[in-house]
Amino acid sequence: MRLDGIPLWDGTEFRGPVDLTWEPDRITGVTPAATARHGDLCVLPGLVDTHVHLVGYAGPGTPPDFATWPLTTTRDEQVLHGAAHAQRAMRHGVTTLRDLAGDEAQIALRRVFDAGVLPGPRIQVHGVVGMTAGHNDLFVPPAFPIRKPTADGPDECRKLVRTWARAGMDGIKLTTSGGVLSIGDKNVWRNYTRDEIKAVVDEAHALGMLVASHAHSEDGIRVAVEEGVDSIEHGTLMSKDLAETLAARRTPVAPTLLINEAIADGRVPVTDEARAKAAELVATRDVLLAQAAALGVRFVLGTDANGHHVRFGDQLAEVVHMTRILGLDAESALRAATSDAADSIGMPVGRVTPGLGADLVVLRGRPWERIEDLATENIVAVVSRGRVVAGRLP
C-alpha cells in the first residue's frame, strides 16, 4: 500500500511531503515526494500508551461500580470487554498498548491479535508483584475469598516473578507505594521492603523482563529508582533530587495526568476516599512534575486508561494535556507518545521508517506545530499492522 505526497512527522521530526509505502507488517519506503499532495493532511506514527488496564467495562453509558464489576463478571465476559477496549484504542490511533496489571486474559488477547485471529493493536503484558495488603491486593474487599496473587518476602517475590515469566509475561509491575483507587489504602504507605524490591528487580532482569514501578510517594519513587527499576508509573510526588537522578538515567516516567484529575474533581464515579486521595496528590503534583520536565525527566505517554475513569481513545487528549501540565512543546509531547514511548518498552514501532512496524495515523492539521490538532475528530484513517482499521486512506 502507499500514500504519495503526504506531509510526514516521522516520530522525531517533520520530514515534509513523502511517498510512503508499506506492507503487512513493515514500512518499506519513505522517500521525498516529487509532488506535494494532501496539503491539509499529515501522517504520524501510531501512538504508544505505556500504561493501560484493558480489562474493565467497555459498554455504553455510565460504567458500573469499579470495585464490584470484576468480582461479578465472568472472566470470559471480561476478556471480550478487554478486546473491545483494545480495538477502540486502535481505531483512535493508539496502536500499541502496555497492560500493567495483566494475567492470562491479556496474554490471550496479545496472542489472538498477533496471530491475526482478530484485528487488534500490539500489546505487552506485565504481571503484578504486590504484597499482602499492598496496593494491588486492596482492590478486592477483605472478606472476598478470590484474590489476585500476592508475594511476601524475597523468596516469594522471586517465585511470583518466575510464575509470571512462565505464563508468558513481557514484564513485571512492582508496587512501591500505596495508591488512589485501592480500598482502605494510603498513597504514603510503604509497599515492600528494600530486600523484596531488590529480589523482584534482580529476578525480572535475569529473566529478560522490564520492571515498571507504581510509585506516587517520594519514598516509593526513591527506593524504586535506587534498586534499578526500568520505569516509574505516576511519579506524582517527585522531589527535585529524584528528578535530577531520573533525568540523568533517562528513566521513563508515565505521569497519568487525566485520571488523577478526573478522580480528584469527582468527574467519574469514585468513592469519597479515592477522591480525597487524588485531590491531595493533584494539589502538589503540577509544580513538581513541571519542575521535573524542566530538569529533563523523560516523560512518556501513560494514561492508566481502564474504561471506568479514562476511556480508551482519550490518549490523544492526554498528550495535549502533557503540554499544559508538564510544559512540553508540541514536538516533545508527540515524541513522548510515539518514538520515545516505543523505545521505553522496547517495541519496534513509534517511527515511520523502513523496516519498522506499519502503524500509521492520517490526520488533519499540523500537531507538531499546534498540539490541539491531535484530536480524535481530526483522524482520517488509522493503519495498524499494515492494514487500514479505521477511516479511509486519501
Rank of each mutant, 00 (worst) to 15 (best):
L8S: 08
D10V: 05
P17S: 10
D19H: 10
T28R: 15
G29C: 04
G29R: 15
H38R: 01
H38P: 09
V48G: 10
D49H: 00
H51R: 04
H51F: 03
V52L: 01
G59K: 06
P63S: 04
A67K: 02
W69N: 11
T72Q: 11
H81K: 09
A83H: 07
V94C: 08
G102C: 02
A105F: 06
I107V: 11
R110D: 10
R111C: 04
V112R: 14
F113E: 11
F113H: 01
F113N: 10
D114A: 15
V117S: 13
L118A: 11
A133Q: 14
A133W: 12
G134V: 07
D137H: 15
A143E: 15
A143D: 15
P145N: 11
P149W: 04
A151E: 00
D152A: 05
D152R: 06
K159V: 09
L160A: 03
T163S: 14
G168K: 01
M169Y: 01
D170R: 00
G171L: 01
K173R: 11
T176M: 07
T176P: 11
T176K: 09
G178Y: 01
G179N: 09
G184C: 10
D185A: 04
W189V: 07
N191D: 15
N191A: 15
N191F: 06
Y192A: 11
R194K: 11
R194S: 12
V201W: 04
A204Q: 03
A204W: 03
A206D: 14
L207I: 01
L210T: 11
A212N: 08
S213L: 05
H214V: 05
S217F: 11
I221R: 07
I221D: 14
I221S: 05
V223Y: 07
V223M: 13
V225T: 10
E227M: 11
E233Y: 02
K240R: 15
T245I: 13
R250F: 00
T251D: 00
V253G: 04
T256A: 08
I259Q: 05
N260R: 12
I263H: 05
D265A: 12
R275D: 10
K277C: 00
A278F: 04
E280I: 00
A292P: 05
A294R: 14
G296P: 03
F299A: 02
V300W: 00
L301H: 04
L301I: 01
H308I: 00
V310I: 15
V310H: 03
G313Q: 00
L316C: 08
A317L: 12
A317V: 11
E318G: 12
R324S: 10
I325M: 06
L326S: 02
A341H: 08
A341K: 03
S344V: 02
I345Q: 08
P348R: 00
P348F: 02
G350A: 02
R351Y: 03
T353C: 03
P354K: 06
P354V: 01
P354S: 03
L356W: 14
A358M: 01
A358Q: 10
A358E: 13
I371V: 10
D373V: 05
L374S: 06
E377S: 14
N378P: 08
V380T: 15
V380P: 14
V383R: 12
